[in-house]
Write a protein that binds this DNA or RNA. Structure first.
Length: 397
DNA sequence: TGTCCACTGGAAGGGAGGGCTT
DNA sequence: AAGCCCTCCCTTCCAGTGGACA
C-alpha cells in the first residue's frame, strides 16, 4: 500500500507548499536583504498550529542559504524551538554554539553567568561576516516562561556588532502574548508581520492529494477518504498536520488489518486513536507526584462525588501518598499540579464560589477513566494503589 | 448588610543537582 | 576545594475573594 510513508510525517518539508505562495514571497522579500549585505527586518509570524508557519520558514531559510552560497554571501539560519529551549540562558547558548565548531569550546548547558554567554555570543557572531537569521519557533512559550529579556537583548545586539547582522523571526500561534511584551520589544519584533490563515477544507484536500500521490501506490485510497480527512481537520481550525496524521494513521490501521485499500472507516478509527495516543503519552510521562494527584481525582470521581473540590482531591492524594510511601506535598503545590493537568487537557478545573462554604476549584476528568488508570498502573509506584478506594479505607477506622 | 469559609494564586526563598572558574 | 551561577521542585507566608448565610 505504501510507497513512501515519510512524506506523511510532520517533520517532512515538501518541495512545494500549496496555498502558501503569498507567505513565501512575503517572507522572502523581507529576508532577501541579507543577500545584499543589509540587515533584514525582524519578523513576527502568526498562525494557528498546522498552517505551515514552520515549513514555510524552513523552506525560505533553505533557499536563502543556497542562494547565499551561490553569491558567496554567508547566511546563517538558526532554528530554535522554544518549547524545548525555553530560558534566556539556553537560547543564547544554543545560538552561540551554532558558531562554535570545536566541541571542547562549546558553552555548557549550565554553569556560566548569562552575561558571559552573551559576550561570547557577540564575539563569535562578529567573527563571521554575514547575516544571521534566528528563528524562535513557539516564541510565546519562551516569553511565558522566561519573560522578554532575551528578545530585548537580541533585538539590540546589532548595536554591538561591527560586521555581522542579526535578525530575529518570532513564530507564534498565540497573539495574546504580545500584550506582555515591553513596548520596545514589541515594536522591534513586529517590524514586519506575516499572517498564516487556516487552510479551508478544499486547500487541505490539495495538500493531502499532493502527499498521497507520493506516499501511496495507485488505487490505495477510496475516493471519500481524502475529503473526510480534510473535513475533520478543517474543523480543527484548518490544521494540516492533523489532516496528514489522520491519513497516515488510517493507512497504518488498514495495513495492519491486511487491507489493500483505505476506507472511511479507518479514518474514523484513526481519529479516536490519535486522541487516545496523545492522552496516553502525556499521562505516561507525567512526574510521579502528578500521577498521584491524577489518581486521586479519578478515584474521587469513581466514588461518585459530584463537583470534586481541591480539598477533597488533596485528602485522597494524601492517603495515596502514605499508602505508596511517597512524600506528601503541600496543598499549595498540589494546586499548581492540578493547574498543570488542566493545561494538558487531562482534567478541567474551574474556580467556583460556594458562598458560605468557601471558594475552591471544581475538578472534573476530561479523559476516559479506565484507560487512564491502565496507563497509571504501568508505573511501579502507582501499581499497588490504583485499586485503592478512599471511602472503604476510611471505614476501617 | 456584613461575615466568613476554603480556598486561590502571587512572592520570596531554600536547597539539591547540574556546572563553571580560580 | 572554594566560590559562583542556573534551573527545578518545592515550602512558607499571606493578601484577596465570590457569594450563601445570618
Amino acid at each position: 500500500m505504501f510507497r513512501n510513508k515519510e512524506v506523511l510525517r510532520p517533520s517532512y518539508t515538501p518541495e512545494e507548499l500549496p496555498h502558501r505562495q503569498a507567505q513565501i514571497n512575503q517572507l522572502a522579500t523581507i529576508l532577501v536583504a541579507a543577500l545584499r549585505g543589509e540587515t533584514p527586518s525582524n519578523v513576527f509570524i502568526y498562525g494557528k498550529t498546522g498552517t505551515g508557519k514552520t515549513a514555510v520558514t524552513r523552506f525560505v531559510g533553505k533557499e536563502l542559504q543556497r542562494t547565499g552560497q551561490e553569491k558567496d554571501r554567508a547566511v546563517f539560519f538558526i532554528y530554535i524551538n522554544c518549547e524545548l529551549v525555553d530560558t534566556q540562558y539556553r537560547v543564547l547558548t544554543h545560538i552561540a554554539n551554532h558558531f562554535i565548531e570545536d566541541w571542547n569550546d562549546r558553552i555548557p548547558f549550565t554553569g556560566w553567568p548569562t552575561d558571559e554567554v552573551y559576550d561570547k555570543l557577540k564575539k563569535k557572531i562578529d567573527e563571521k561576516d554575514g547575516a544571521c537569521i534566528i528563528v524562535l519557533d513557539e516564541i510565546d512559550k519562551l516569553v511565558f516562561k522566561a519573560g522578554d529579556d532575551v528578545l530585548y537583548n537580541l533585538s539590540r545586539i546589532n548595536d554591538d556588532l561591527k560586521r555581522a547582522k542579526v535578525s530575529v523571526i518570532g513564530i507564534s500561534n498565540d497573539l495574546k502574548f504580545t500584550e506582555f511584551l515591553d513596548p520596545r520589544v514589541k515594536s522591534s519584533l513586529g517590524e514586519e508581520e506575516v499572517i498564516f490563515p487556516p487552510y479551508d477544507a478544499v486547500q487541505l484536500q490539495d495538500i493531502l492529494r499532493q502527499r498521497a500521490a507520493v506516499a501511496f501506490k495507485e488505487d490505495s485510497l477510496e475516493a471519500s477518504v481524502i475529503p473526510l480527512c480534510a473535513a475533520l481537520a478543517a474543523q480543527e481550525h484548518g490544521d494540516a498536520r492533523r489532516a496528514l496524521d489522520l491519513l497516515r494513521v488510517a493507512a497504518e490501521l488498514a495495513e495492519r488489518e491486511g487491507q489493500k485499500t483505505i476506507s472511511e472507516k479507518y479514518v474514523r478509527k484513526a481519529q479516536n486513536k490519535i486522541e487516545l495516543d496523545r492522552v496516553t503519552e502525556v499521562v505516561r510521562t507525567l512526574p510521579t507526584q502528578s500521577k498521584l494527584v491524577l489518581l486521586a481525582t479519578i478515584l474521587g470521581e469513581e466514588d461518585g462525588t459530584k463537583g470534586l473540590t481541591t480539598g477533597e482531591v488533596y485528602d485522597t492524594y494524601r492517603e495515596l501518598c502514605q499508602a505508596a510511601h511517597m512524600d506528601v506535598l503541600t496543598q499549595r503545590r498540589v494546586t499548581d499540579l492540578i493547574s498543570e493537568l488542566d493545561m494538558l487537557g487531562i482534567l478541567q478545573a474551574r474556580v467556583i464560589s460556594k458562598g458560605r462554604y468557601g471558594r475552591t476549584k471544581e475538578i472534573q476528568m476530561s479523559v476516559p477513566l479506565d484507560e487512564t488508570k491502565a496507563v497509571l498502573r504501568e508505573d511501579p509506584v502507582l501499581e499497588p494503589i490504583v485499586g485503592f478506594s478512599p471511602k472503604k479505607q476510611a471505614r476501617l477506622f
